[in-house]
Amino acid sequence: MEILIALIIGLLSGCGVYLLLQARTFSVVLGLTLLSYAINLFLFATGRLVIGQPPVLSAVSSPADPLPQALVLTAIVIGFAMTAFAIMLSLRAQAELGNDHVDGEQP
């Protein structure tokens, strides 16, 4: 399972960085979204991968760590709001500058 999670995080961040380096705002926003998915998965894995165990200390021998779950929840909410903002800003840039290039002008 560790390898699977690591591969997924690697793939997501790889695609995210590639898209982030594109010159169109749409790809950049998509890249940021993929990158934040990768980070959220990574954060989730920082509490070690445990399956089917409650986050209660005394109940089982290897409990799940509840803190990363709380962190991920916060990060998802913040990431969602930020993505919404980035999309609105991209649309506004498209409307005001007349194109969707990140520098506001066609090269």
């Binding site: 982030l20 705002t25 500058l97 990140v102 520098d103």
Partner: peptide, 13 residues
């Protein structure tokens, strides 16, 4: 808006 777009994307990263 152009300066803001750069600022926002860099800070999101």
């Amino acid at each position: 808006t152009r300066a803001g777009l750069h600022y926002v994307i860099l800070n999101l990263l």
